[in-house]
Design a protein around this nucleic acid. Structure first.
Length: 500
RNA sequence: UCCUCGGUAGCUCAAUGGUAGAGCAUGCGGCUGUUAACCGCAGGGUUGUAGGUUCAAAUCCUACCCGGGGAGCCA
């Protein structure tokens, strides 16, 4: 096959003749003139085909390509300010490679369930294109930062023999008549690898069998877990901050088109420069219970009510002029009504939730773990991610080091993303003392035998060390400002969703 | 598991207990610069399932199934 040019690179070929290969994304026709919107995975471009400047065979092909048919198009690249990439193609020849039968996803509004059933095709659409390209950019930023800093990438096992380390529900499976589980974290293995290689990170899938039906949960997600020998809690927090700053910087620099497709406000991302505010758990509890938090709730409720009123008014006005409207106008009013109704549903839900959230935040008791809403409320006060550290030991994993200043506290830390996206990082400094760990395992009712290899890490040259886990999809969701995690991964696995 | 909202044409949604509609998609026709193109015509329905109330049910009641997002849990 002779070579073709990718749409992404078309701006370098202005005035030249090129060959593109791709799929028809959408088309608009007039008599003797067709506007073919072609995508090739790298980008999207409008190709203009005129009957009077094409051979009969090409014009026949132009007339018959349907949405998502594959095609090869030959043409001249022209600058055109009106177009998305700043260029369009004047078609000089077109060949259909394979005709697509009626494509289920029309370039119109669709519901979540329908689109999820068509996920294998949905990935072809513009918005998903933007998200997956940003996902790729974020993954590369993570590897680049760690590699530049001398970390070794190595992965923890996905199959594990024991359901330890806490209370979350794991997927159980049969491993040659033995019980096995899908990993919920590579944490303990990461510690072993850090004692062997100094600084390591894992990058792999993680599984949770919780029956969570929310926009923040998947049953299978990707987690990045660095683990570093000779790192204390402060160094750990700094690394997490550097990583997130790096991700935001790279995406803003390299993915402007993608962010534009997603209608993402770049200014919000440009603010992610560090240093991130660091709040102790004590500070965070005080902030939750503060008058400032009360004021944020008042403001938010007032805004929701005001927006509801203005939307309801707009809907009334639209309905009033619907009768006299022309057909095209009616269509726009219908589309807008759907938008308004969807937004009103969201507002209703928010107004239903806010009282409970307010109750939870303002009456928060020291010693409890933050709920999803409490995390969101904390982030209302800042426009960068925040780091909360030094939690009550009772709500953190058994392997966390205690705060030497206050034995009630564990040296854990969470990074909470702004704009209500919540926890994207969880980690901390690990306990180094063998006897302490043995007591912890007993106190948590965990089987001592299976931790012997882990205890060896303390028997043979125990050192201060730290690490954390970064949730890839949660990070993507926040960076892209998506309404739901499910769009941040090609084939999401959720409760009740195993296909496609 | 609990709470809450929903299920109407292929898709997105309308429809005071009283003849189920619109837009998109599809088919046909028109239009030489369209941007979710536009204009005209046509086909397209066991209103999630099973019962019940009623002269009459998409609409009211009961049970179940499926989906949304919230709680719990967490990345």
């Amino acid at each position: 096959m002779h070579s073709s040019v990718s749409i992404e690179k078309l701006a370098d070929y202005v005035g030249k003749d090129v060959v593109l290969r791709g799929w028809l994304y959408n088309r608009r026709d007039s008599k003797g003139l067709s506007f073919l919107v072609v995508r090739d995975g790298s980008g999207i471009v409008q190709c203009v085909a005129a009957e009077d400047s094409l051979d009969a065979e090409s014009w026949q092909a132009v007339s018959s390509v349907t949405q998502e048919s594959s095609l090869e198009v030959r043409g001249t690249v022209r600058l055109d300010d009106r177009q998305v990439g700043g260029v369009e193609l004047t078609v000089t020849g077109l060949r259909m490679i394979s005709a697509a039968s009626e494509y289920p996803i029309s370039p119109k509004a669709h519901g979540v369930e329908f689109l999820m059933n068509q996920r294998h095709l949905w990935l072809r659409s513009r918005r998903q294109w933007a998200i997956m390209r940003i996902r790729n950019r974020i993954i590369m930023s993570i590897h680049q930062l760690f590699q530049e800093q001398g970390f070794l990438q190595m992965d923890a096992p996905i199959l594990t023999g024991n359901a330890v380390e806490g209370t979350s529900t794991l997927f159980e499976l049969d491993y040659f008549d033995e019980k096995a589980y899908l990993t919920q974290s590579g944490q303990l293995y990461g510690e072993a690898m850090a004692m062997a290689f100094g600084k390591i990170y894992t990058f792999g899938p993680t599984f949770r069998a919780e029956k969570s039906k929310t926009r923040r949960h998947l049953t299978e997600f990707w987690m990045i877990e660095p683990e570093m020998a000779f790192y204390d809690l402060d160094m750990n927090m700094q690394l997490a901050e550097d990583l997130i700053v790096r991700i935001a910087r790279d995406v803003v620099r390299d993915c402007a088109t993608e962010l534009q497709v997603l209608d993402r406000d770049m200014e919000q991302l440009r603010k992610i420069t560090g240093p991130f505010p660091r709040l102790s758990y004590d500070d965070a509890v005080a902030l939750l219970r503060s008058d400032e938090t009360r004021a944020k709730f008042d403001k938010r409720e007032a805004e929701a009510v005001a927006e509801r009123e203005s939307l309801e008014l707009e809907r009334e006005q639209n309905r009033a002029r619907y009768g006299q409207a022309k057909k095209g106008e009616k269509r726009r009013i219908d589309a807008r009504e759907i938008e308004i109704n969807a937004r009103l549903d969201e507002i209703e839900e928010e107004l239903r939730n806010l009282p409970a959230w307010r109750e939870s935040a303002l009456n928060f008791e020291w010693g409890g773990d933050f709920g999803g809403s409490d995390e969101t409320v904390l982030t209302w006060h800042f426009d960068q991610p925040i780091i909360v550290h030094r939690f009550p030991a009772s709500i953190k994993a058994f392997y966390m080091k205690r705060d030497p200043e206050d034995d009630r506290l564990a040296l854990g830390m969470d990074v909470l993303a702004p704009e209500g996206y919540g926890e994207i990082v969880g980690g901390g400094e690990r306990a180094t003392d063998l006897e302490f760990l043995e007591r912890q395992v007993a106190a948590h009712g965990l089987p001592e035998e299976v931790f012997q290899w882990y205890f060896d890490l303390r028997r043979y040259g125990s050192v201060p060390h730290s690490g954390f886990g970064l949730g890839l999809e949660r990070t993507i969701t926040w960076i892209c400002k998506l309404p739901h995690l499910r769009e941040a991964i090609p084939f999401p696995r959720l409760m009740g969703r195993l296909n496609p």
